[in-house]
Simulated assay, not measured.
Amino acid sequence: MHRITVVGGGFAGLTAAVAAAEAGARVTLYEAHHALGGRARTAEGPYRTNEGPHALYNGGPHWSWLRERDLIGPLAPVPPSAGARLRFRHRGALRRTPPFALLRLSRRGAGPAPVDVDFLTWAGGVAGAEGARAAAHYCAVALFHHDPGSLSAAFVHERLRRAARLPPEAHYPRGGWSALIDRMAARAWDLGVRVETCSRVDALPVDQPVVVATSLDAARRLLKDPALTWPSGRTALVDLAVRTRRGDAFAVSDLDAPGWIERFTAQDRTLAPAGEQLIQGQFPIGPRESRAAGVARAEELLDLGFPGWRQRVTWRRESVAQGRTGAVDPPGSTWRDRPAVDRGTGVYLAGDQVAAPGVLSEVSFTSALTAVSLALGRRELAPKRV
């Protein structure tokens, strides 16, 4: 029987542990913190926030894998009124519809977008400079990057199409992402996975395969490999609860600059106490920008979409996510150019900044299955690559 070690108990680590145990391996999972989940943890009440806005896209390979194992669980349905309450800031004003150029770029007919050209240059040639900027900024919901227009056109366009698709691909596990993580952890335990929390790993075993499912920064330190780098985003996160008011927007997308605010209690009332609404926003900031700059942009958007919010605030929190929002691909690069899953000598990487396709959490999932398939020599475990 194969033995395999998994370092990291987030979404990627739990995917790897479940997949390896299902294949018959004896699995030990080590998590440095007291709870599993990594960035997929949900805060305990009364305000059940995730670390930044989270959604589960149903167009990726992880959706069917999770559903086959009954791990998705109850979903919080997006209310029918959500579409009517989606707002866009464009040219300084709040609007009900995005510019036509953005819609044009989000369709398949606009592509294929090139890998070696930046998105702003390519999209500007298709829909004009203003439409290209609006589309790039709209992609902040799936990019968390301060300058999406400077990234590979192919990379940004894929995310634009996924984020703008109708009906929406985004779904929300009821109770937050911790509910999904709890089901994955229970599945791992039922399969016999040995889970060690509060166990920081400083040296890897040499007698069995190891899947390192940590952040890329942590993997670089653990493996002492300076080559483990790839660009990511830097994002100001703003979470707040406000007293309920009729007419508040469901979500506001900033098309004048990258930014997104969403009222998560619109679909899941369990995330905040009765009579209150939980709002989470993300505002990408540049390498030299302060958190205050991102927060200031958030407040401008709140003024437009949630009138009187300052007088209604019951709770507030601000933070910065540095390199914790997934890989971004510059012009001339694709996911294949990121740090490889197979590091040699029986060590494999999994996470959202490694060489695997997909959008947001799909990268973590795909890299985890790829790592396990390589570690155990079981090709059928590897997801189909696109």
Rank of each mutant, 00 (worst) to 15 (best):
R343P: 15
L302F: 14
A218R: 13
S232F: 04
A368Y: 08
A129T: 09
A93E: 14
L204Q: 04
A249P: 13
L360S: 02
V354A: 00
G286E: 07
L204D: 03
L94D: 11
A136R: 02
D182Y: 03
L191W: 05
A185Y: 01
G83W: 13
L105T: 04
A292N: 11
F100H: 11
A355W: 06
A251L: 10
Q277E: 15
Q267P: 05
R291M: 13
L36C: 04
A186W: 03
A186R: 14
L204H: 06
G59C: 12
L151V: 12
P74M: 02
A219I: 06
V372E: 03
E362K: 00
R159W: 03
L376A: 07
D239M: 04
R174H: 09
T265Q: 03
F119D: 02
L29T: 13
G37M: 01
T214V: 07
W309R: 08
D329V: 02
S373C: 09
L66M: 13
A241L: 02
A23M: 10
W65G: 07
S64R: 15
R67S: 15
F283L: 15
R161F: 03
L271H: 00
S319T: 08
L86V: 10
D303F: 07
L180R: 07
A164S: 14
R234N: 04
A163C: 01
L14Q: 10
A382K: 14
G8F: 05
G323H: 05
R96F: 02
G10E: 02
R107D: 06
W189S: 09
V141K: 12
G332C: 07
G73H: 03
L369K: 01
L381Q: 14
E158T: 07
S361Q: 08
A241V: 08
A241I: 05
H62T: 04
V295R: 14
R67T: 15
T314E: 09
P98I: 00
G124E: 10
Q311W: 04
L75H: 03
P209T: 00
P79D: 07
R3E: 14
G233M: 09
R194N: 07
L216Y: 06
L105E: 05
L102C: 06
D147T: 10
A185I: 06
D337S: 13
A251T: 09
Q311G: 14
V27Q: 11
A40I: 05
R133L: 12
V386R: 09
A356I: 10
A368D: 08
G60Y: 00
G344I: 11
W177Q: 04
C198Q: 10
M1Y: 09
D225A: 11
R183Y: 13
A136E: 01
T5F: 09
Y172W: 13
P330K: 09
L94C: 13
N50S: 14
K224M: 06
S361F: 01
